[in-house]
Nucleic acid binder design. Structure first.
Lengths: 153, 153
DNA sequence: TATTGTTATACTCTATAACTATA
DNA sequence: TATAGTTATAGAGTATAACAATA
């Protein structure tokens, strides 16, 4: 070990990178929360809205939000009370209810997506070519994580 | 606009980068939550613990957690009930209570920091030189955000 | 007067367990 | 039997407003 300084210093820099990513992630979360609040949405409601590119079974919504299925009832209730989503029957399975955006829901979702994108930390401080590099690296990270997940189960 | 394709395509790629960062941030949040849960901590409790490198006034903790000061009472109560923190008087100002880690709190905090670092998405999928590039870019993003914040107030 | 921490209150998110209607 | 959605329940985080102790 002492003959090669790389292993330990590599560990250190890996942790530095992890800490930096955690800080940026924290910041991103904060901006997301602010963007959601500007539209009177909680972070969870905002995440649910962004999930609804198409009508989605409530069970699938629970999966997308990484929460228990019982939570989706309340989340859908509150979005529904604001007129942003409706529960539609699934033609193929009468147990299933599909969450679908109303016209107003679509408007709010688009505004949300715009606001979130505009508030992203990457829009300040990086040039176009640097963003390209960042995109490449982040894409690799996501792919690796997805692959690791697929293997483990 | 049509004479120069760059502005619009640049906007598109900027949004792609923002979306990618959001996805990685979401993933990071998820791993953080899992690491916290493995030590029977909620995400908020874990964030509070990581803040406590040194004894911290409750007011400052509220600032670090970006939450209202009234919340810190309950968060400190629960950490205190588990024997991880204590409330110490501030010698210089009798209104202030300093949150300080117990010996057990220090142990849990260190274990948490280790687990969080090991679970970071950047540890899979990136080589050392790529992590160096990522570190450079993320550092720039953080700096730019901090600067923008300082200007706006 | 202003600030620190607390309490009371209300809302949202979260998981667990038990229930119903369908499959 | 198994699955989709709901309800009941309980704990945690969140903000607002009002309060006591201290500055």
């Amino acid at each position: 070990m002492s003959s090669n300084p790389d292993p330990s210093s590599s560990l250190v820099e890996a942790r530095d990178t992890a800490a930096l990513l955690l800080a940026v992630a924290e910041r991103t979360r904060q901006e997301f929360e602010r963007a959601a609040a500007s539209l009177d949405l909680t972070p969870t409601q905002a995440r649910a809205l962004l999930t609804l590119a198409a009508a989605t079974p409530m069970r699938a919504m629970a999966g997308a939000l990484h929460c228990d299925a019982s939570n989706v009832t309340g989340i859908a209730d509150r979005l529904s009370a604001r007129g942003l989503v409706t529960r539609e029957p699934d033609p193929g399975d009468r147990r299933v209810k599909l969450l679908a955006l109303t016209a107003e829901g679509k408007r709010v979702r688009e505004q949300l997506a715009r606001t979130v994108a505009e508030a992203s930390p990457v829009l300040v401080g990086l040039e176009a070519d640097e963003r390209a590099t960042l995109r490449e690296l982040l894409g690799r990270v996501l792919d690796a994580v997805a692959e690791a997940e697929a293997q483990e189960g």
